[in-house]
Amino acid sequence: MAPKLSIADVLTLPKSTVKIPRLGFGVYKSPTNQCEESCINAIRAGYRHIDTAQLYGNEAEVGHAVRKCGIDRKELFLTTKILTPGDTPEETYKKALESVRKIDGEEGYVDLFLVHSTGSGAEGRKDMWLALERLFAEGKTRAIGVSNYGVKHMEEMKAYAKTWPPHVNQIELHPWCQQKTAAAYCKEHGIILEAFCPLVRNKKASNTVLVNLANKYGKTTCQILIRYSLQKDWVPLPKSDNPDRIKANAEVFDFDITDDDMAVLDGLDEEAGGAIVKFVGNE
Protein backbone atom coordinates (compact mmCIF):
# COMPACT_ATOMS: atom_id res chain seq x y z
CA MET A 1 0.00 0.00 0.00
CA ALA A 2 1.12 3.55 -0.67
CA PRO A 3 2.06 5.60 2.39
CA LYS A 4 -0.50 8.05 3.70
CA LEU A 5 0.85 11.47 2.86
CA SER A 6 -0.09 15.08 3.53
CA ILE A 7 1.12 18.43 2.24
CA ALA A 8 2.79 19.01 5.62
CA ASP A 9 4.99 15.90 5.31
CA VAL A 10 8.76 16.23 5.44
CA LEU A 11 11.87 14.09 5.00
CA THR A 12 14.92 14.33 7.25
CA LEU A 13 18.17 15.12 5.45
CA PRO A 14 21.09 12.69 5.96
CA LYS A 15 23.24 13.22 9.06
CA SER A 16 21.13 16.27 9.88
CA THR A 17 18.14 17.44 11.87
CA VAL A 18 16.95 19.59 8.95
CA LYS A 19 13.66 18.50 7.41
CA ILE A 20 12.69 19.16 3.81
CA PRO A 21 9.03 19.41 2.73
CA ARG A 22 7.97 16.53 0.51
CA LEU A 23 6.44 18.85 -2.09
CA GLY A 24 8.31 21.79 -3.57
CA PHE A 25 7.43 24.64 -5.91
CA GLY A 26 9.76 25.34 -8.84
CA VAL A 27 10.28 28.75 -10.43
CA TYR A 28 12.42 27.90 -13.48
CA LYS A 29 11.60 30.39 -16.25
CA SER A 30 9.09 32.17 -14.04
CA PRO A 31 9.41 35.77 -15.30
CA THR A 32 10.54 38.39 -12.83
CA ASN A 33 7.24 40.25 -13.24
CA GLN A 34 5.31 37.06 -12.42
CA CYS A 35 7.50 35.05 -10.03
CA GLU A 36 6.60 36.93 -6.85
CA GLU A 37 2.87 36.50 -7.39
CA SER A 38 3.29 32.83 -8.32
CA CYS A 39 5.25 32.15 -5.14
CA ILE A 40 2.60 33.86 -3.03
CA ASN A 41 -0.10 31.80 -4.77
CA ALA A 42 1.90 28.65 -4.06
CA ILE A 43 2.28 29.49 -0.39
CA ARG A 44 -1.44 30.19 -0.14
CA ALA A 45 -2.06 26.77 -1.70
CA GLY A 46 -0.02 25.12 1.04
CA TYR A 47 3.47 24.81 -0.44
CA ARG A 48 6.22 25.54 2.07
CA HIS A 49 9.20 24.78 -0.18
CA ILE A 50 10.37 27.01 -3.05
CA ASP A 51 13.23 26.12 -5.38
CA THR A 52 15.11 28.83 -7.29
CA ALA A 53 18.65 29.27 -8.67
CA GLN A 54 21.13 31.88 -9.82
CA LEU A 55 20.45 30.70 -13.37
CA TYR A 56 16.74 31.50 -13.06
CA GLY A 57 17.33 35.19 -12.40
CA ASN A 58 14.47 35.43 -9.90
CA GLU A 59 16.05 34.89 -6.48
CA ALA A 60 15.14 38.42 -5.37
CA GLU A 61 11.53 37.92 -6.42
CA VAL A 62 11.32 34.75 -4.33
CA GLY A 63 12.64 36.78 -1.41
CA HIS A 64 10.04 39.49 -1.96
CA ALA A 65 7.28 36.87 -1.94
CA VAL A 66 8.54 35.37 1.31
CA ARG A 67 8.50 38.75 3.02
CA LYS A 68 5.00 39.56 1.73
CA CYS A 69 3.25 36.21 2.16
CA GLY A 70 2.43 36.50 5.86
CA ILE A 71 4.02 33.15 6.75
CA ASP A 72 6.86 33.05 9.27
CA ARG A 73 10.21 32.63 7.50
CA LYS A 74 11.04 29.64 9.70
CA GLU A 75 8.04 27.78 8.28
CA LEU A 76 9.38 28.06 4.73
CA PHE A 77 12.13 26.04 3.04
CA LEU A 78 14.06 27.99 0.41
CA THR A 79 16.54 26.47 -2.03
CA THR A 80 18.93 28.08 -4.50
CA LYS A 81 21.85 26.92 -6.63
CA ILE A 82 25.22 28.13 -7.89
CA LEU A 83 25.94 27.27 -11.53
CA THR A 84 29.58 28.30 -12.05
CA PRO A 85 32.49 29.26 -9.81
CA GLY A 86 34.15 32.67 -9.64
CA ASP A 87 37.75 33.27 -10.68
CA THR A 88 38.99 32.59 -7.13
CA PRO A 89 37.66 30.64 -4.13
CA GLU A 90 36.82 33.93 -2.41
CA GLU A 91 34.87 35.16 -5.44
CA THR A 92 33.00 31.85 -5.57
CA TYR A 93 32.05 32.24 -1.93
CA LYS A 94 30.93 35.85 -2.46
CA LYS A 95 28.88 34.78 -5.47
CA ALA A 96 27.03 32.27 -3.31
CA LEU A 97 26.65 34.70 -0.41
CA GLU A 98 25.05 37.23 -2.75
CA SER A 99 22.29 34.72 -3.50
CA VAL A 100 21.57 34.35 0.21
CA ARG A 101 21.31 38.12 0.55
CA LYS A 102 19.02 38.44 -2.48
CA ILE A 103 16.65 35.89 -1.00
CA ASP A 104 16.72 36.63 2.72
CA GLY A 105 18.69 39.82 3.33
CA GLU A 106 22.03 40.63 4.96
CA GLU A 107 21.41 38.59 8.09
CA GLY A 108 19.34 35.88 6.45
CA TYR A 109 19.88 32.32 5.30
CA VAL A 110 18.66 29.77 2.79
CA ASP A 111 17.60 26.29 3.80
CA LEU A 112 19.39 24.45 1.01
CA PHE A 113 22.13 25.52 -1.39
CA LEU A 114 23.07 23.28 -4.31
CA VAL A 115 25.86 23.04 -6.84
CA HIS A 116 23.66 23.29 -9.92
CA SER A 117 25.68 21.41 -12.51
CA THR A 118 28.75 19.28 -13.14
CA GLY A 119 29.67 21.42 -16.17
CA SER A 120 32.49 23.43 -14.56
CA GLY A 121 34.82 20.44 -14.38
CA ALA A 122 36.39 18.76 -11.35
CA GLU A 123 38.12 21.88 -10.01
CA GLY A 124 35.07 24.05 -10.53
CA ARG A 125 32.87 21.53 -8.74
CA LYS A 126 35.32 21.42 -5.85
CA ASP A 127 35.51 25.22 -5.56
CA MET A 128 31.74 25.55 -5.48
CA TRP A 129 31.34 22.80 -2.91
CA LEU A 130 33.94 24.33 -0.62
CA ALA A 131 32.18 27.69 -0.90
CA LEU A 132 28.91 26.04 0.11
CA GLU A 133 30.61 24.30 3.03
CA ARG A 134 31.80 27.71 4.20
CA LEU A 135 28.25 29.09 4.05
CA PHE A 136 27.05 25.99 5.87
CA ALA A 137 29.60 26.47 8.66
CA GLU A 138 28.52 30.12 8.98
CA GLY A 139 24.82 29.26 9.20
CA LYS A 140 24.05 31.01 5.92
CA THR A 141 22.57 27.77 4.63
CA ARG A 142 21.08 24.99 6.72
CA ALA A 143 21.95 22.25 4.24
CA ILE A 144 24.01 21.74 1.08
CA GLY A 145 23.69 19.45 -1.87
CA VAL A 146 24.15 18.94 -5.58
CA SER A 147 22.15 18.84 -8.78
CA ASN A 148 22.67 16.81 -11.95
CA TYR A 149 25.31 14.67 -10.22
CA GLY A 150 25.81 11.04 -11.17
CA VAL A 151 27.57 8.39 -9.11
CA LYS A 152 31.03 9.38 -10.36
CA HIS A 153 30.52 13.00 -9.34
CA MET A 154 29.29 12.10 -5.86
CA GLU A 155 32.17 9.66 -5.37
CA GLU A 156 34.62 12.35 -6.53
CA MET A 157 33.49 14.60 -3.67
CA LYS A 158 34.85 12.21 -1.02
CA ALA A 159 38.39 13.47 -1.70
CA TYR A 160 37.62 17.00 -0.44
CA ALA A 161 34.17 17.20 1.14
CA LYS A 162 33.91 17.73 4.87
CA THR A 163 30.16 17.36 4.52
CA TRP A 164 29.42 14.01 2.88
CA PRO A 165 27.12 12.65 1.68
CA PRO A 166 25.52 15.72 0.13
CA HIS A 167 22.14 16.26 1.73
CA VAL A 168 20.30 16.31 -1.60
CA ASN A 169 20.79 15.43 -5.25
CA GLN A 170 18.33 17.17 -7.60
CA ILE A 171 18.03 15.38 -10.93
CA GLU A 172 15.48 14.91 -13.69
CA LEU A 173 13.01 12.27 -12.52
CA HIS A 174 9.69 11.09 -13.93
CA PRO A 175 8.34 7.78 -15.31
CA TRP A 176 10.25 8.11 -18.59
CA CYS A 177 13.55 9.05 -16.89
CA GLN A 178 13.99 7.19 -13.60
CA GLN A 179 17.80 7.44 -13.37
CA LYS A 180 17.93 4.07 -11.59
CA THR A 181 21.69 3.90 -11.05
CA ALA A 182 21.95 7.36 -9.49
CA ALA A 183 18.70 6.83 -7.57
CA ALA A 184 19.90 3.55 -6.08
CA TYR A 185 23.20 5.15 -5.03
CA CYS A 186 21.39 8.04 -3.35
CA LYS A 187 19.05 5.66 -1.53
CA GLU A 188 22.01 3.59 -0.33
CA HIS A 189 23.67 6.68 1.17
CA GLY A 190 20.51 8.36 2.45
CA ILE A 191 20.76 11.25 -0.03
CA ILE A 192 17.37 12.86 -0.64
CA LEU A 193 16.34 12.80 -4.30
CA GLU A 194 14.61 15.89 -5.65
CA ALA A 195 12.77 15.54 -8.96
CA PHE A 196 13.03 18.38 -11.43
CA CYS A 197 10.80 18.25 -14.50
CA PRO A 198 8.39 15.90 -12.66
CA LEU A 199 5.66 17.00 -15.11
CA VAL A 200 7.92 16.34 -18.14
CA ARG A 201 7.11 19.94 -19.16
CA ASN A 202 3.71 18.64 -20.22
CA LYS A 203 5.27 16.78 -23.15
CA LYS A 204 3.55 13.53 -22.12
CA ALA A 205 0.10 15.00 -21.44
CA SER A 206 -1.45 12.92 -24.24
CA ASN A 207 0.39 9.69 -23.43
CA THR A 208 -2.20 6.92 -23.46
CA VAL A 209 -1.02 5.20 -20.29
CA LEU A 210 -0.92 8.46 -18.37
CA VAL A 211 -4.30 9.66 -19.67
CA ASN A 212 -5.91 6.32 -18.80
CA LEU A 213 -4.60 6.51 -15.24
CA ALA A 214 -5.75 10.11 -14.89
CA ASN A 215 -9.24 9.07 -15.98
CA LYS A 216 -9.19 6.07 -13.64
CA TYR A 217 -8.37 8.19 -10.60
CA GLY A 218 -10.37 11.25 -11.62
CA LYS A 219 -7.21 13.37 -11.56
CA THR A 220 -5.20 15.45 -14.01
CA THR A 221 -2.17 13.95 -15.70
CA CYS A 222 -0.03 16.37 -13.70
CA GLN A 223 -1.53 15.17 -10.43
CA ILE A 224 -0.76 11.56 -11.36
CA LEU A 225 2.87 12.46 -12.09
CA ILE A 226 3.32 14.41 -8.85
CA ARG A 227 1.73 11.64 -6.79
CA TYR A 228 4.00 9.12 -8.55
CA SER A 229 7.05 11.14 -7.49
CA LEU A 230 5.84 11.30 -3.91
CA GLN A 231 5.25 7.56 -3.73
CA LYS A 232 8.76 6.99 -5.12
CA ASP A 233 10.08 8.98 -2.11
CA TRP A 234 11.27 11.72 -4.42
CA VAL A 235 10.70 15.41 -3.67
CA PRO A 236 8.92 16.75 -6.79
CA LEU A 237 9.28 20.39 -7.80
CA PRO A 238 6.34 21.13 -10.13
CA LYS A 239 6.37 24.56 -11.74
CA SER A 240 3.53 26.72 -13.00
CA ASP A 241 2.61 30.39 -13.15
CA ASN A 242 -1.09 29.60 -13.59
CA PRO A 243 -2.88 30.07 -10.22
CA ASP A 244 -5.37 27.26 -10.85
CA ARG A 245 -2.64 24.81 -11.84
CA ILE A 246 -0.48 25.82 -8.89
CA LYS A 247 -3.39 24.95 -6.61
CA ALA A 248 -4.28 21.74 -8.46
CA ASN A 249 -0.68 20.51 -8.37
CA ALA A 250 -0.82 20.60 -4.56
CA GLU A 251 -4.07 18.62 -4.43
CA VAL A 252 -2.42 15.22 -4.59
CA PHE A 253 -2.90 13.97 -1.04
CA ASP A 254 -6.43 12.57 -1.26
CA PHE A 255 -5.65 9.47 -3.32
CA ASP A 256 -3.12 6.66 -3.64
CA ILE A 257 -1.77 5.10 -6.81
CA THR A 258 -1.98 1.34 -6.37
CA ASP A 259 1.14 -0.82 -6.45
CA ASP A 260 0.00 -2.30 -9.76
CA ASP A 261 -0.42 1.13 -11.34
CA MET A 262 2.92 2.31 -9.92
CA ALA A 263 4.44 -0.71 -11.68
CA VAL A 264 2.75 0.35 -14.93
CA LEU A 265 4.31 3.81 -14.61
CA ASP A 266 7.67 2.26 -13.70
CA GLY A 267 7.44 0.31 -16.95
CA LEU A 268 7.52 3.52 -18.99
CA ASP A 269 11.22 4.12 -18.25
CA GLU A 270 13.31 4.94 -21.34
CA GLU A 271 16.55 5.56 -19.42
CA ALA A 272 18.69 8.19 -21.15
CA GLY A 273 16.27 8.35 -24.07
CA GLY A 274 13.52 9.58 -21.79
CA ALA A 275 15.40 12.61 -20.49
CA ILE A 276 14.27 15.98 -21.80
CA VAL A 277 16.99 17.93 -19.98
CA LYS A 278 19.72 15.77 -18.42
CA PHE A 279 20.55 12.12 -17.87
CA VAL A 280 23.41 12.08 -15.38
CA GLY A 281 26.76 10.38 -16.00
CA ASN A 282 27.50 7.58 -13.55
CA GLU A 283 30.85 6.18 -14.74
Rank of each mutant, 00 (worst) to 15 (best):
S6E: 15
S6K: 14
V10E: 14
S16G: 08
V18F: 09
G24F: 02
G26W: 01
S30A: 13
Q34G: 05
C35G: 06
C35A: 07
E36D: 04
S38C: 06
N41R: 07
A42H: 00
I43H: 02
A45N: 05
Y47L: 03
Y47V: 03
D51H: 07
N58W: 06
A65Y: 00
V66I: 15
D72Q: 15
L76E: 07
F77Y: 12
K81C: 01
L83K: 09
L83F: 14
E91W: 06
T92D: 02
K94W: 12
K94P: 00
A96L: 03
L97M: 04
S99H: 07
S99Q: 08
V100Y: 09
K102C: 12
D104R: 10
G108A: 03
S117K: 10
T118G: 01
G121C: 11
R125A: 03
W129V: 00
L132V: 06
L132H: 02
E133W: 11
R134Q: 10
R134I: 02
G139K: 14
T141E: 04
T141K: 04
R142W: 08
Y149L: 12
H153A: 13
E156N: 09
M157K: 04
K158T: 10
Y160P: 07
A161D: 11
N169C: 07
Q170N: 09
P175V: 05
P175D: 05
K180F: 05
T181W: 05
T181Q: 10
A184C: 08
Y185T: 11
K187E: 10
I192Y: 00
L193E: 03
V200D: 01
K204Q: 10
N207L: 09
T208F: 03
V211C: 04
V211P: 00
N215T: 12
K219Y: 05
T220C: 11
L225H: 01
R227V: 11
L230Y: 00
Q231K: 01
Q231Y: 00
D233W: 09
L237E: 02
S240E: 08
N242M: 06
F253K: 04
D254I: 12
T258I: 09
T258C: 07
D261I: 06
A263S: 15
L265H: 00
G267E: 07
D269Y: 03
E270K: 13
G274Q: 06
A275R: 02
K278P: 00
G281P: 06
N282Q: 14
